[in-house]
């Protein structure tokens, strides 16, 4: 591995994946109790990708996550409190009640670009952020995520072509989780490896095991370094599985049980737990302590978010325009 991760870094990756999972589990339990507002998207299965991609960036780099990238938001410094408040439509939420679930969680001070529902619209915008670095000769990189379904859009093609022709310092990660809502990959594209398309744009295409947190980190880090060195964009396909429904309302009965069972064996957090124990980076008790810390953080976040006020109705027309 080109980028060796020290033991404390390995534990950090473990912590962020755990926190992402704890958030996801509390969120889904909360919604199942009927207390949620609107809908929200499951994260299970995507933790290794969103966490390690964000971990591979410098603070000055720009990230444009999508709806499966809770881990990236957490890593970038949005607290579980403020994110849960966003889910509950609170004034203290990242979008101040203006947008639902993880949508609208942009924060330029943390170099986060918020997404819209329309896919893959963060992609050209992130390419533009990367082009601004070239324009200003700044040694910064942009990174964005998109889905296997979103890779079928015209804008996906337009954006990758533009990124390549501009040699933009960007890393594009396709989180191939085998489904777009109920549509399986085979009905989405006739080319099973989306990374293969990269050659059609004139950029490297990299296929990664999206459930191997260190493999994703290494692959993303290499692409980030290449972008920072002025060698242009990379298309990364990280293969994983959406382990729950598309969103909380979706039972995903259309996903074959055997498929889920096979992927359950490859659960990114369980795999990493085994690896850390094997390597003696931590013992079971130390890992359990991290798990407990994450649970406590989530209890605190939910309690805090529930106590936060909803926005005042008379602020509804504020901030449509920048001053």
């Amino acid at each position: 591995m080109t980028h060796h991760l020290a033991p404390d870094q390995q534990l950090e990756l473990y912590y962020w994946m755990r926190l992402t999972r704890a958030f996801d589990e509390s969120m889904i339990a909360y919604w199942k109790q009927g207390k949620g507002i609107g809908g929200t998207f499951s994260q299970r299965g995507h933790e290794a990708i969103s966490v390690s991609a964000a971990y591979a960036l410098e603070p000055d780099d720009v990230i444009a996550p999508m709806h499966r990238d809770l881990g990236a938001y957490l890593l970038r410094g949005l607290s579980p409190r403020r994110i849960f408040a966003n889910l509950l439509g609170r004034e203290a939420g990242v979008s101040r009640g203006r947008d639902a679930n993880l949508h609208g969680m942009g924060d330029l001070e943390r170099n986060i670009i918020g997404f819209v529902s329309h896919l893959p619209h963060s992609l050209p915008v992130a390419v533009g952020a990367a082009m601004s670095f070239t324009y200003r000769k700044e040694p910064r990189v942009a990174l964005t995520f998109t889905g296997d379904g979103a890779s079928s859009t015209g804008l996906f093609h337009e954006s990758l072509n533009l990124a390549a022709v501009q040699r933009a310092p960007i890393v594009v990660i396709v989180e191939n989780n085998q489904y777009a809502y109920s549509t399986p990959l085979a009905q989405q594209t006739a080319v099973p490896d989306i990374a293969e398309r990269a050659s059609g744009y004139g950029m490297p295409g990299v296929m990664l095991d999206g459930n191997d947190v260190e493999a994703v980190y290494a692959g993303v880090r290499e692409a980030v370094d290449r972008a920072r060195a002025g060698d242009g964009p990379t298309l990364i396909e990280a293969k994983t599985m959406r382990m729950l429904g598309h969103a909380v309302h979706d039972g995903a009965e259309y996903v074959p049980a055997e498929l889920l069972a096979a992927w359950e064996e490859k659960d990114p957090i369980r795999r990493y737990t085994r690896l850390l124990l094997e390597r003696d980076v931590a013992d079971a008790q130390e890992l359990a302590e991290i798990d407990r810390r994450c649970e406590v953080e989530m209890l605190d976040a939910i309690e805090w978010a529930e106590q936060m006020p909803l926005p005042q109705a008379d602020t509804v027309t504020e901030r449509v325009y920048a001053a």
Binding site: P124, G128, S132, V165
Partner: peptide, 19 residues
């Protein structure tokens, strides 16, 4: 390139970065 969605998207990203 001939890609209005792509380059207006990119222009949006550049504008978000303060250009």
């Amino acid at each position: 390139p001939l890609a209005e969605g792509g380059f207006v998207g990119a222009g949006t990203g550049m504008a978000l970065m303060g250009l």
